[in-house]
Amino acid sequence: MLNVNSHKQIRGIEMENSPKNSRRDFIKKGTRLSLLLTLGAVGGIAAKHLTGEKYVWQIDPFKCTQCGRCATSCVMSPSAVKCIHAYDLCGYCDLCGGYLKPDANQRSTAAENQLCPTAAIQRKYIEEPYFEYVIDESLCIGCAKCVKGCTSFGNGSLHLQIIQNRCLNCNECSIARLCPSEAISRVKASNPYKVKGSFTKEGKS
């Protein structure tokens, strides 16, 4: 113990006395300060473009070309992208281009007629001649088959959206990187969806 203490003392004295050490300390201090300043500068430049908003990824349904990459490129499986139904635009048709295969055998709910590979769209009869189509989000894999069908043959009420409680909000969205039509961009988290518009809620303008 004594040995250690004396050693310490000796070292202490050496440190204080050695001009080499104090110079080194000075250089160190200076470098530290300049590193801190650099960090400050980087932070300052970045702070110019700082936003307090949170941003999340979302699809612009008007740009979407239903290429199918949302289903395969998301880091989640199944994808965080799912089909959303804008009921306001729906024609409630018996012959639904999003529900039925283009050359469906019958207009029925039988498997051979359904377009959706996971049977995620439920067809409900309302009244003659109208049918309601509801998407079971837990089954939807975001393949956009129905979206393509609805856009080509119907009113375009089915469209893809990133479901925000499933999306991990990656630093860079892996679907956005591969989206051929650049339809995915960051939107403010306070307004995280781009659901297609409506007739009834539009108001007069």
């Binding site: 055998n105 039988a110 498997a111 051979e112 590979p117 996971t118 049977a119």
Partner: peptide, 15 residues
């Protein structure tokens, strides 16, 4: 039709 329905069910189950 029945065959398709069965197959479809199987496929989805498998998935």
């Amino acid at each position: 039709k029945q065959e398709i329905r069965n197959f479809d069910l199987l496929a989805r189950k498998a998935y």
